[in-house]
Amino acid sequence: MTAWERFLETFFKPELMVQYWPDILEGVVVTVQIAAAVVVTGLALGLMLASVRAYQVRFLNLFIVIFVDVFRALPPLVAILLIYFGLPNIDIVLPSFAVLWLVLSFVLAAFAEEIFWAGITSTPKGQWEAARSTGLTFSQTLLSVVLPQAIRLGIPPLTNRTIAITKNTALGTVIGVSEILSQATSAQAFTGNATPLMMGALAYIILFIPIVAVGRWIETRFAWRRA
């Protein structure tokens, strides 16, 4: 067996590819579902926290800052393990996909909050004054004038961050969420061959390259022309 044949046998064994592609596809579906849920709830929660922070209520802001700093500092894997293996001890049992979804949402929310908050604070004071001088309330000004600008300002840094965090769905494998990597590793364990892992890697690439491309498109599309 030549080296080249051994390489193909290890990473691209045709029989295994045929046998395991349905499993990998199942994993893709799970990954997409969790990633989509994380993006929606993470960004929504981040935007909500940044908006609440704008009201400058001291104890709420303290809570928000602590939440944000904790989830930016903590490796997601540690949070996942802590919640998945810790909470059952106080009789809270969450399904593994829920733990993965919650933790990644919180991590994305923490980063998104900081990005949206930066957008809110960098919106010129004159925008607030113009709106307030026409009789708009604080909330109306925040909602109609400041947030649209803050969100737009936040989109380029957010796309990168969102992609980075959705890739962390692979961490679900350690608590048995049947996403791509989990399917691939269990197939690898059965077969003693790296082909399923290679299929998993290809699945990630096929899944995320379009997302990265869309991210780049969004970044240029929303490059802000300042008046």
């Binding site: 004159g126 925008q127 004054e129 113009a130 709106a131 009789g135 309330t137 004038v145």
Partner: peptide
């Protein structure tokens, strides 16, 4: 807010909403 409705204000830097 009711009071400000009856007082218009025009700023040096316009402060139009860019979006």
């Amino acid at each position: 807010n009711a009071l400000r409705r009856s007082m218009g204000m025009v700023f040096q830097s316009f402060n139009l909403y860019p979006h």
